[in-house]
Write a protein that binds this DNA or RNA. Sequence first.
RNA 1: GGGUCGUUAGCUCAGUUGGUUAGAGCGCCACGUUGACAUCGUGGAGGUCACAAGUUCGAGUCUUGUACGACCCA
Length: 942
Amino acid sequence: MFPTFATSSNDWRFAGAFSFPAMTTPDPNSLPSNYDFAATEAEWYSRWSEHGVFTASAARAAQREPFVIVLPPPNVTAVLHVGHGLNSTVQDLLIRWRRMAGDEALWVPGTDHAGIATQNVVEKQIAVEGHTRFDLGREPFVERVEQFVAQTGGEILHQLKSLGSSADWTRTAYTFSPELSVAVREAFVRLWERGLVYKGHRVIHWCPRCGTSLSDEEAEFTETAGKLYHVRYLLADDAAQSITVATTRPETMLGDVAVAVHPDDARYAPFVGREVLLPITGVRIPVIADSYTDPTFGSGAVKITPAHDANDFDVGKRHALSMPVIIDADGIVREVELAAGRVPPSLAGLDRFVARDRIVELLTAEGALVKVEPHQHNVRHCYRCDTVVEPRLSDQWFVHMQPLAEKALAVLRSGQLRILPERWEAVYVNWLEGIRDWNISRQIWWGHRIPVWYCDACSSTAGTSTPIVSRDPVLFCPTCGGTVRQDDDVLDTWFSSWLWPFSTLGWPDRNSADLKAFYPGDVLVTAPEILFFWVSRMVMAGCWFLDETPFHTVYLHGTVRDMQHRKMSKSLGNGIDPVDVVRLYGADALRWTMVAGLGLGVDVMLDPDDLEKSFAPGRNFCTKLWNIGRFLLSRVGTEPVDPIGVLAPESLTAADAWILDRLDQAIADCDAALGPPRPSAHGAWTEAEKGRGLRLSEYAEAARRFVWNELADWYLESVKPRLATEGADREVARAVLAHAFDGALRLLHPIVPFITEALWQQLPQTPHPALLATAAWPKQRITRVLIGDAFEHTRETVQAIRKVRAEYNVQPGGWVDAILVASGPLATVLTAQLETIGVIARGRVVIAPIAPTGLASRIVLSNGVELVVPLAGMIDVAKERQRLDGEIAQLDKQLSALDGRLANEKFTAKAPPELVVAERAKAEEWRSRLEQLRAKLTALGE
RNA sequence: GGGUCGUUAGCUCAGUUGGUUAGAGCGCCACGUUGACAUCGUGGAGGUCACAAGUUCGAGUCUUGUACGACCCA
């Protein structure tokens, strides 16, 4: 059922062919002049699906190299945007490439339950009904979210199909499925058993709107124009003296427990150990010395609010200070904990930002506000709802990350893992080396409930509060048999997605066939934004739980931006809906546009206001390819062609040899741009191969150049007359034409799968193979038929004639006379080319041993041959002289530079000898050409 | 404040260990509908490789500094 791949055949065209019940072979002569991408894309996607092209097999993976990519799971409620389009195009390209190259290619798709994001969506829905989640209660709310997900979730996966994504949909996974939930609990329990999960009481990032804690990564910095308030705190024992502190958040002064100064700061030395009075409330707090204080910032004295600032929390711990909480979970100022007498009635119940304004007023009234300065600083915002994050003291679950980070660093250093572009490796290392513990508990309801239970009876009687941590639900206390209650918190969404590369393959079941066959995977394709959120955590999880990095390559692609270089986003309204693009221009046009513009790590610029212009490269390419195919196939016809391997070398023309050589070169260029697909030895990248491959735009350019600039522009033009005459040479031309186009379509298929499949089906193949999607990736010929560079002479001659024609505005239909002045072997080579040159350049071309005299346009070709185009009565002497003058001037300049270099003894002595020899030869060549040109100029003047 | 990187044609970018006359796509200019293709063809213009100094026979490429910019982290 699946193709075998020839290893030694010179003829890879049929190597991957496997027979299907005959498909209809429409007459290529009747291909419509306009490509119907909508119908074609729908038809071929369903045929690929029907034939199981996308479905990988663990059994087959034993016989060949597996190649595995896991899709970064989009949020289950997400709608496709152009970033997803870019991301999945890259993955599909790689998967299709490796599938053709003979790997057992597996692309695992799926979605993420996206705890906070999804909960927010449903909360907004019920808000319309005038309710909060608390009105509904936990279980009904979760049911409501489940319903919502069941009804609308996963739509994005269907949208991905319209882009041609060849993911294995039979393996579609979901981070909140029963199977993956098992993996989540397993991971939590294992980390607990190793002492790496713990419950901590500390200041975390709190989103008052979402009502939950956030990890460091989820609280994003935004540059904000704020104010720096300088507030005077009077000494308790001497109201004549004071300390001024600087703060950006005056409302937190209600929770101040100290003023800290640097121990070496002489200005404040006399105050240390004494007390100051908090303005407004009059609470007495000590002045302490702590080296955390930066004496150069603000006044050099800083207020300490341990419950509402992570750094202050550390200071508070060091000095055993109390930690009053004065802002509650909703962001309201009040006496929450240990704060009796700290919040005046006039401020209690106010929102934190309203309270800030009121406090500033009160401070001003009291005369405690010294000054206010404008101040640029970074403020953390919730990555889900953009609310300003409130640092808040609370109980949370953490993972102690350092042991995991060490493993993730080790695999990078050993070369088992690489990141492209390589500069991101430094960022990765930097982050892992300074890793902080991961807050994994969230105070929301939508997510994996933390697998921890408490027995109230035991903790009150025995005085132990040891939680019961379990893989399976706990119904009764194992100690006393009493009732238990489960921890209310759920796990961070990323705690399930960090297991994605193996939880989707059946882990923790070590005997899972998929896990054995497909772990570890190969490439992870994503944007740099989630390097820490997801990528590095997956590496840590893979290394920790399975002792192997989950992939050997991380490919970080650029971001899609608009013409002002702004990231495309819903809020800016500058997004592009890929579904629109597919509807207007087709998936292939979208894919080509993105891939062609995708330099390594480079952002893709698209104009949301001008889709036509933005996607013109892809649309134009597809149109051109369709026209090439339509014309070429109509000329080749439906009769079977000879396999290229059976053609006698001597039956090939210079053009045949040239295009076959160009195809070999294109294959080599594409392979070099894409590969190597995996480390060649011992699972680790060598220094030499580490930075190579995944140059997608180079791959696209190499394939484009071949099919457009070489096959269509030159070979197809040159072969027209041969096809018009019945006979052996026509059969050679047909065979070469079919072979070259077949190779081009194979090279292009990973980028533009639909149009290439549709065209490929029209090739006259025997036996008729089934699908390009599973055909073999092209290989260079082992034996090259070399006929020198005869066809290059043709190309240069044609271009020279065209230049003369353009110069003198010869009508396209008009024919010109041209004489090639040549003798010896070169004359022989050119003689064989005269007809071809004539047809392409529309010239009556002859060879002559001596240049004819008289007025003519004369061009010296690089092979020394003089091209003479008489153009009777049309030659403009001034124009000819100007052209020759220009050429002579430039060549003269270059030659003097070269001569200067050769005259430099240091150069001839120190440069590599072969270079010196080459440069001397070049100088001679230029000198003789210069003489030729000067002779022409002289002749012109006579 | 720390880290990483960038600055090459009007725009977006290649340029792999220093060594041909620095390339591509798009855009621009001229001509053109010759029976595949105007979503196209042919020809052409356009760059002191940010700036300064250094190493070298030789620098877009290596070193240092300056300017501007981007991204990540605190």
